[in-house]
Design a protein around this nucleic acid. Structure first.
Lengths: 206, 206
DNA sequence: AAGTGTGAACCTCTTCACAGCA
DNA sequence: TGCTGTGAAGAGGTTCACACTT
């Protein structure tokens, strides 16, 4: 499978989410304009995305929801599921942990790390918390490929280095500091302070 | 001032953040390539952004950091500061509240809302928590223009309607559900589950 | 008539390439 | 020589417009 555009991948996640709701409401087929309405986007966009993943609908009925869900699953998931770790179990870290886990069948946080000895060697939200100096060992042993960074900003560069050595392939950075990662690591910056400031800017003038 | 591209606004927030660090480290001028390094972007991008805000550097010294900070401040901030409210004080909501407040001088969360009577009429992280049915009243009285939505997904549509009536101009949506907002409201979707799935997709192969 | 599938135009953002300056 | 400022090209994403199908 050729790699899909980033924006299309994001929308596929969202399609799947609303398709689950739709199917449990008893519908079996859906038109592009219905799906578009649910996500507040245009029908053309929906059709283009579906074209990109090589699926075809039927004219009278639209798209078969079950087929679409399982096709999107093939694209987004791996059969065994993917494993993530969260590094930094402060306020934000632990609420992300509980918020996220259980939301996706094939993607879950299976390990947590912190420096605080009060937190390590305990279980939070069903997940074992290890001391940070065991990062490499645990990540390698468990085959973790995705790391969620919620440590204080000044600690992130060192940790990134260890993550890279440990075989992590993707990092979600909640730290308000631009990370320098090797080319072979996919980085997603998730900086809510910047996002808030952006919103604030765009609502400045009445 | 003509409205700036979205991506440029995001970077301006980040420029300002690192410029504060740079100036407290004793530097007074900075070259585009230095600023670019700090943010892991290209020098051309930095120069283009600075061009867009109508500032000019000098050839031998680069940009005057103080000037740049105050110019960015003029662009991003309002003199009085902007006020935000957070709606939903669950795990995620309260950690966002404490994480965010104090990070920016001209932008702060000054009110919180929840349905749970255990939480209302108390103070969290220095912020008063009101019952949701006082949304409109409080938002109007305090002149709040930005709302952060961290309620369970099924409650969001109703709340958006009230927010719109109350004069809110921008919404940050942490809810995993596409919101339908009127045209005059700026919406920022902040969906970490989708972002995680996206990262997971891009690290699938190899 | 009311859908889907898609080439082409369009828009936004980034990068190239280079003129100009101290 | 080593920087800034910027027109123009390029890349990525969205929308238009319309052919096609039942």
């Amino acid at each position: 499978m050729i790699t899909l555009p980033e924006k299309t991948v994001e929308r596929l996640c969202k399609y799947r989410r609303v398709l689950y709701n739709t199917i449990s409401a008893g519908k079996q087929h859906i038109f592009s304009h219905e799906l578009a309405n649910l996500l507040q986007i245009t029908p053309v966009q929906v059709r283009r995305d579906i074209m990109l993943i090589g699926y075809s609908g039927t004219l009278r009925k639209g798209y078969d929801i079950k087929d679409l869900i399982s096709l999107i699953g093939n694209i987004l998931d791996t059969p065994e599921g993917q494993k993530a770790a969260i590094i930094g179990l402060g306020n934000l870290g632990s609420s992300i942990l509980t918020y996220f886990n259980g939301k996706r069948a094939k993607l879950s946080i299976i390990a947590a790390f912190d420096i605080d000895p009060q937190k390590t060697n305990r279980v939070f939200g069903g997940v074992q918390c290890y001391p940070v100096d065991r990062l490499e060992e645990v990540i390698k042993a468990q085959g973790i490929r995705l790391a969620i960074l919620t440590v204080p900003a000044n600690q992130s560069p060192d940790i990134v280095e260890v993550l890279a050595m440990s075989g992590v392939k993707g990092i979600m950075n909640f730290t308000p500091k631009a990370l320098h990662v090797p080319d072979n690591i996919y980085l997603e910056e998730y900086d809510m302070v910047t996002s808030m400031e952006k919103v604030a800017y765009f609502i400045k003038q009445n």
